[in-house]
Design a protein around this nucleic acid. Structure first.
Length: 258
DNA sequence: TTGCCCTAATAGAGTAGTTA
DNA sequence: TAACTACTCTATTAGGGCAA
């Protein structure tokens, strides 16, 4: 999803920004791969959400596959953390070490927060046989819930400046938005880790009003960094809808203070 | 020569499944 | 149910290509 060849939303957004006077619509077209895979399913989900979120995006790909995803999505569940996240990073300058530092900062107040929240999609129950998308290590870096706002942080260290950060964050935001809206669900589980009960309770009580995807990075890909305000403006000019005077889905960028 | 970008290889983290 | 294994995926690193 993060690789250049796969991050189609990222390229579409930056093209739409940098060539705004030339581009009215962006058409996403593709052929069915010979061997369909979990990655192809995730691509389909991402493509469908991209078109739903932005009225200038048109899907022209394999119609049967799009319709199949739309038909079955209500049966999907998201996997839950099966244990606590690792406490120690192997390297002090690693992304996971930075993630824990930021979590400590978030922990300074009383907001609900957590790290490494899985986002694998499965049909009805979590198992290898029922996997829809890659799920074993597809996780939201950090999350925070306060006053109706569910914030998803996508953290990148300075050396990781891929353009795919945008596609990755969009995927996480859409999964959480579908969870919030009851389109996809969490399965039953007796063991709960990483503060997941807070999220489940918030979904059940309907207290999540808005999802905010936050780019948490000092350095970004040049096509994003130079014009991040304009990029975010395009991201926020979506058609997802407004709840309680706030966008259901929005994006923001903050710098990491070392 | 230097710095940047990209790619491929590898290490590490997290997951589901299996077994005792 | 805990411990272990196999597997997948992401993050990280090293090295090559290219332009200034």
């Amino acid at each position: 999803m993060q690789e250049n060849a796969s991050a189609f939303e990222s390229w579409a957004i930056v093209l739409k920004y940098h060539l705004k006077e030339y581009i009215e619509k962006i058409i996403i077209d593709w052929e069915k791969p010979q061997n369909t895979s979990l990655h192809y399913n995730r691509f389909l989900y991402r493509a469908i959400k991209f078109e739903k979120n932005y009225d200038w995006v048109v899907l022209k790909g394999v119609k049967d596959d799009i319709e199949k995803i739309e038909r079955e999505i209500n049966n999907w569940v998201v996997n839950l953390p099966s244990k606590s996240a690792q406490e120690k990073a192997t390297r002090q300058d690693s992304e996971s070490a930075l993630e824990r530092k930021v979590l400590e900062i978030l922990s300074a107040d009383n907001r609900h927060k957590g790290q490494q929240l899985p986002t694998g999609l499965f049909k009805k129950q979590v198992s290898e046989a029922t996997a829809i998308t890659p799920g074993s290590n597809s996780c939201i870096d950090l999350w925070e819930f306060h006053d109706g706002e569910f914030r998803i942080y996508e953290l990148k260290i300075d050396s990781n400046q891929g353009i795919g950060i945008l596609s990755e964050l969009m995927f996480y935001v859409n999964v959480m938005n579908d969870l919030k809206n009851g389109i996809i669900k969490y399965p039953q589980a007796k063991d709960r880790y990483r503060n997941i009960e807070t999220i489940i309770e918030a979904i059940e009580k309907g207290t999540i009003k808005t999802i905010v995807g936050v780019f948490l990075a000092n350095k970004m890909h040049p096509l994003l960094a130079k014009n991040i305000k304009g990029i975010i403006e395009i991201l926020n000019n979506n058609t997802v809808g407004i709840l309680f005077e706030k966008k259901s889905i929005s994006y923001d960028k903050i710098n990491i203070v070392n």
